[in-house]
Design a protein around this nucleic acid. Structure first.
Length: 375
DNA sequence: TCTGGGGTCCTAGGACCC
DNA sequence: TCTGGGGTCCTAGGACCC
């Protein structure tokens, strides 16, 4: 039996901002938009003043009460809650707090898998076993104590709260950590699945997104319980051998994936959405400048992180939101901005340029470390 | 009221080699 | 002249996640 925990920081970016601006506590606040919208003195800009194409990255629980949520366009959010306050994102500060909370967790539970800036999985099986002598006789009670200790350590290190789910696997823990947010601690055993998991919408399963959710609904499957009772052959017929079979397993709460404590990046990229769509001919010079600057920033990222890459990719999004990509694999890996620019420029020639463009991006994949040799 | 930026993984077809 | 499988690499698109 494994004891797997998932930890999710509560409204992370917004909570970090509230540490800096405690006077905003209790108010609807959203984080989003470009850095430009700087905070001047005590004048916090209201959402109603916003113009542009940004989206909400995080909303406080007070803002969520207005129906605001991450991913929502700021213009739409402004209609729903014009008086909510808008703060620009400060990723350097969020990364600093992220390191603080992860270091605090690792001091207690060394088996940690990074899942982005505000989330981790932990395999706490060892902790639960070690505490058998002095702790409670029920291992699930000891798992709960361990999770409480971790929550306290995160709070002491950062002043921030988090929610934790503890279950036999990653899939269930991810769902469980959301059940009692904020500040929640949810422990689920296998026998709790029918009562606690099956009533939930299929979309709560990590890996069932908007498309699969809609297709399941179209065949009359809304809850995880309904998915669990569905004929696996029907799921395979609709979603393919691999995905269909996985859905069935997931609905029954089965997941054997390990907590992966080390991993290497597969690709590094930079992209930008323009304030106004650009015309490939009329705005050629401006596009070219932005293109080059993306390549320079990407080369900086590669150098700072210590990688070179062999596959250069271009990404373009048209004004109708259709996205195309092209890539080109070089004979030798590179980290040079000029070489990246040339390869991406070749990719650009293979893409139709017959309408306005809203986004341009450059990516480097097939990464390796330049120092590494074959022998 | 149109939808950010950074990623991962999967699928599928074609080239190419044995 | 027609016909095999198997394996790997490359490319493009799409779903999904934080």
């Amino acid at each position: 039996m494994r004891f797997i925990a998932h930890l999710d920081m509560d409204a992370f970016y917004a909570s970090v901002e509230l540490l800096r601006y405690p006077e905003l506590r209790g108010k609807p606040v959203v984080i989003g938009g470009r850095r430009r919208a700087a905070v001047e003195g005590n004048a916090f800009p209201a959402l109603r003043a916003y113009t542009g194409r940004g989206v909400i990255t995080t909303a406080t629980y007070e803002a969520r009460a207005f129906g605001l949520h991450s991913g929502m366009g700021l213009m739409k959010a402004a209609k729903l809650a014009p008086d909510a306050l808008l703060l620009p994102a400060d990723f350097d500060e969020y990364r600093r707090c992220s390191r603080l909370f992860k270091d605090a967790v690792r001091a207690l539970a060394p088996e940690v898998e990074d899942r982005g800036i505000d989330e981790i999985y932990m395999d706490i099986t060892g902790l639960v076993e070690e505490s058998a002598a002095e702790g409670a006789p029920d291992p699930w009670v000891r798992a709960r104590v361990a999770a409480r200790d971790i929550q306290r350590a995160v709070r002491e290190a950062t002043g921030l709260t988090c929610s934790i789910g503890v279950t036999p696997n990653k899939l269930l823990s991810k769902i469980a950590s959301e059940l009692e947010k904020p500040g929640g601690l949810t422990v689920l055993r296998e026998e709790d699945i029918p009562a606690r998991i099956w009533p939930l919408a299929v979309r709560k399963i990590n890996g069932i997104g908007p498309k699969a959710g809609a297709r399941l609904e179209a065949i009359g499957i809304r809850t995880i319980g309904e998915l669990a009772q569905a004929d696996p052959a029907l799921l395979v017929a609709h979603f393919g051998r691999s995905y269909g079979a996985w859905m069935h397993e997931a609905a029954h709460g089965r997941d054997g994936r390990a907590v992966v404590t080390v991993s290497e990046p597969k690709s590094i990229s930079r992209e930008t959405t323009f304030e106004d769509d650009l015309h490939p001919v009329r705005d050629r010079e401006q596009l070219s400048r932005i293109f080059t600057s993306l390549c320079v920033r990407l080369a900086d990222d590669l150098k700072r992180k210590g990688y070179v890459g062999r596959t250069i990719g271009l990404k373009l999004r048209y004004d109708n939101f259709k996205t195309v990509t092209r890539d080109r694999t070089l004979d030798e890996p590179t980290g040079d901005s000029g070489a990246i620019r040339r390869a991406a420029g070749e990719c650009l020639k293979r893409v139709p340029l017959d309408r306005r463009i809203r986004l341009l991006g450059v990516r480097v994949g097939a990464l390796s470390r330049p120092g590494a040799t074959l022998f």
